[in-house]
Nucleic acid binder design. Structure first.
Lengths: 185, 185
DNA sequence: CTCCTCTCGAACAACCTGTTCAATAATGAA
DNA sequence: TTCATTATTGAACAGGTTGTTCGAGAGGAG
């Protein structure tokens, strides 16, 4: 048994989740209706509501499959060493990430991603001796904003670059400032 | 004649625009319906559609009143000197900016703000001798992302800081990296 | 005062949502 | 294989939203 449920359940849920990704890539998240979803997934209306409360629940179900944002806070290695791995991960799952985090994706997902990333960056700065406080949080916000901006533009095709190039740009821009903050502590 | 139109037109348009701001602050942008708008503005349904194509048109009409994003590219003065003035401007129009750019606001507006800011920052880096190219654009993207992240969190009340503190954080984080880029040119 | 424009409000078709229900089909276990 | 369990179906429904239309009436400009 893969999963622990009825095969029909697995099939249905997967069909719906797949359909959402396809439709987001075609029209963006907001315009997608539940009716679209059940047509594309070829599933009965009542079946849909037996599995998901609404459109957004499907979105979040997909979200779990792209939760590549949980590196341990590291005090050694290069500062913000996590970023290259993340860019590479995004590239592998480009299709899914594009649907979820791109301009056509849902706002909630971006907010969720920002929160995860915020924790990662904050923990890393603290692990390297940053002093908790308002000014550290402001720097964290800047770093999160910069990273997410790169990812969004990248998956939307507004930027053509390799993961290594993105990583380099992120470090060029953010690392000196972050070091300055740490040195001040 | 203030404006150049019928007084009724002015009154109607203003009532609708005001209503949208109020409603966004109460429920966020997406949940606001045209029916909500015409009730709050106390305006007939057909009247609404005589002035605006849809909800989003009202949003953009409001947007013009907060277009504080047009500083001339400056090659002298401190790098990214525009930012303090912008943070102060945001504080003055906090109510409106909060409705438009905050978490409850529309995605389109944020995208629009990012585009304006991107041009500003890009021009400034070019005016200071930055070499146009992919790696400059990547840095610009980071700077825009960082700035917008600060503004969003600020107007949403997730950050409690003065414009000067925000400005300082922005410069601490971004300026060293930007200088490094310019030095490389 | 008069003409012209704007507003009103109701009614409309079209669409979307989320729920219900009885009939049918697939599944997993004995 | 058989059989009880569970999932799916498809249609129908009430409630809400959108954008349009139209005649009647109110308001402003000159």
């Amino acid at each position: 048994m893969s999963g622990n449920t009825d095969r029909r359940v697995r099939r249905t849920r997967q069909a719906i989740q797949r359909a959402l990704v396809e439709l987001i890539l075609e029209k963006g998240y907001e315009p997608v209706t539940v009716t679209d979803l059940i047509n594309r997934a070829d599933v009965g209306r009542s079946t849909f509501y037996a599995h998901f409360a609404d459109k957004q629940a499907v979105l979040f179900a997909n979200l779990d499959e792209v939760a590549f944002l949980h590196p341990a806070p590291s005090a050694d290695g290069p500062l913000f060493g996590f970023s290259l791995a993340m860019f590479e991960h995004v590239q592998e799952q480009r299709r899914l990430v594009r649907a979820l985090l791109g301009r056509r994706g849902g706002q909630m997902v971006i907010a969720h991603g920002e929160q995860l990333l915020q924790a990662v960056i904050r923990d890393e700065l603290l692990a390297r001796g940053g002093r908790a406080g308002a000014s550290l949080d402001l720097v964290v916000t800047c770093a999160v904003g910069a990273f997410m901006a790169l990812v969004r533009k990248w998956v939307d095709g507004e930027i053509d670059a390799t993961p290594a190039e993105l990583d380099a740009a992120f470090h060029t821009t953010i690392t000196p400032g972050a070091r300055a903050l740490l040195a001040r502590a």
